[in-house]
Amino acid sequence: MTLLSLNNMKTDIGQYAVLHGVTLDIPEGGVFVLLGRNGAGKTTTLRSIMGLWSPTPGSVTFRGADITGLHTAEIARKGIAYVPENMGIFGSLTVEENLILATEKGRFDQPRLKRIYALFPALEQFWTKQAWSLSGGQKQMLAVARAIIEPRALILIDEPTKGLAPSIVAAMAEAFREISQSATILLVEQNFHFAKSIGRDMAVIDDGLVAHAGTMADFAADTELQERLLSLSA
């Protein structure tokens, strides 16, 4: 069943056209990976879904309802969470404050909190520390935790493994598998090895368009296609 569908999404940033008409269906469940070279428009796709850039023309449909042009906050309340590339951590707030801010009612749902502690034990350990003092990996964990503190149907995550140590990347992969049991993850990823290990479906964005979409298994088997769509030389 389709959870999110992008229909001919065109986005301009200032005077530059970045997306030239992205059309894509994201099925419910699992991890959907967006691949592509730098500057191809992956981040812009996520930001356009989130309403941080407005796609004109084009439309975004989420659970059958048109969410194009809604305010970012309303899109979030419809059940989409966003983990930006820079993680968007509030450095002067403590770990606890970062998380409680993300709850809708201002208090924690204890079972969900337990689940987050289980996924990312470091967060419980540094509960009262200001977030700027965390390591890069811990900040990324906090950013992901903040996205799942409320039940969200879709979680947009932008390059979560960038600059992280291999052990943390492995922990992150584990966490994403667990999260994708109950929600859909739309993941932008440069690290193909990581993407291959957790992705079920995938698409390649190239020059503001969807260049290929299919299952990760097929794409991983087709080295020629990978070479054509992802290599830097082309």
């Binding site: 941080l52 979030a76 309340r77 509030f90 002067s92 970062n98």
Partner: peptide, 20 residues
Amino acid sequence: LLVRAGVENREMVEALGFRI
């Protein structure tokens, strides 16, 4: 809390579902 978070990163507070 929202104000302090908003001072740091307005966009992120909105992405968490609040109208700054």
